[in-house]
Simulated assay, not measured.
Amino acid sequence: MAKKAKAYWKENLRYLFILLTIWFGVSFGAGILFKDVLDDIKIGGFKLGFWFAQQGSMYVFVILIFIYVRLMNKLDKKYGYDS
């Protein structure tokens, strides 16, 4: 049982690391590092770098939450923790 729980948490942490890395890349990368490059593109009259800094990273975070829920439901079934 302890080996199963350890494998479960290892996979869970791997999912967390991947999803948080994506969010960091979008929020920090697109909103700060690549802002000047993205500002050449406009969406709805706003520069794309500004859009990512203000709204894009929040949208991506919400999408990643839904992805995490789906991954965790599959993980729960895989290890028999679903009810």
Rank of each mutant, 00 (worst) to 15 (best):
N12I: 14
D40W: 15
F61Q: 10
G31V: 08
Q55L: 15
A53N: 14
F28H: 13
G31Q: 01
G56I: 06
L13D: 05
V62G: 01
L16D: 12
F17S: 09
M1D: 13
V62I: 15
K10V: 10
D76G: 04
K47L: 11
D40L: 15
Y15Q: 05
K4L: 14
N73V: 11
L71I: 06
A30I: 08
G80A: 02
F17M: 14
K3H: 09
F50K: 14
F34C: 02
R70E: 12
T21Y: 04
M1H: 06
L13Y: 15
K6V: 14
G56V: 01
G56L: 02
T21M: 13
Q55S: 14
K4E: 00
D76K: 06
K35V: 01
L20I: 13
L48C: 04
L48H: 08
Y81V: 01
I63K: 00
E11N: 09
L20A: 12
K42G: 04
K6W: 06
L20D: 07
S83W: 10
L19W: 03
Y79K: 02
S83I: 06
Y68W: 14
F24P: 05
V60T: 02
K10A: 13
W51F: 07
Y15K: 02
V69Q: 12
L64K: 07
L16C: 13
L64C: 00
R14K: 15
D76W: 02
F46K: 15
A30F: 15
L13S: 11
K6I: 15
L38P: 06
S83P: 09
D39I: 07
L16W: 13
F24W: 14
K42C: 08
V26F: 04
F61W: 11
G56Q: 05
I43D: 00
K47T: 12
L20C: 00
F52C: 05
W23S: 11
K78D: 02
F24M: 08
I22L: 12
K77W: 06
Q54H: 08
D40V: 15
F17T: 12
M72A: 00
K42F: 11
F28C: 09
K4D: 04
L38T: 04
K3E: 06
G45Q: 08
K78N: 03
Y15E: 01
G49K: 00
L48G: 03
V62P: 03
I65W: 12
M1T: 05
V26T: 05
D76I: 00
F66H: 01
D76E: 05
L38S: 05
R70M: 10
L19Y: 08
S57V: 02
Q55P: 10
G45V: 04
F17H: 09
S57Q: 11
K77V: 01
K74F: 12
Y59R: 06
I67P: 02
G49I: 07
F66I: 14
D76N: 11
Y15T: 03
G31E: 06
I41S: 10
M58C: 09
S57C: 12
K6M: 13
W23H: 12
K42M: 07
N73D: 11
Y81R: 07
G44M: 05
S83N: 10
F46S: 10
G56C: 03
F34P: 06
L71N: 06
L38Y: 00
S83K: 12
Q55H: 15
A5F: 13
F28L: 08
N12V: 07
L64W: 04
K10C: 10
V62T: 09
L13M: 11
E11R: 08
G44Y: 08
R70P: 00
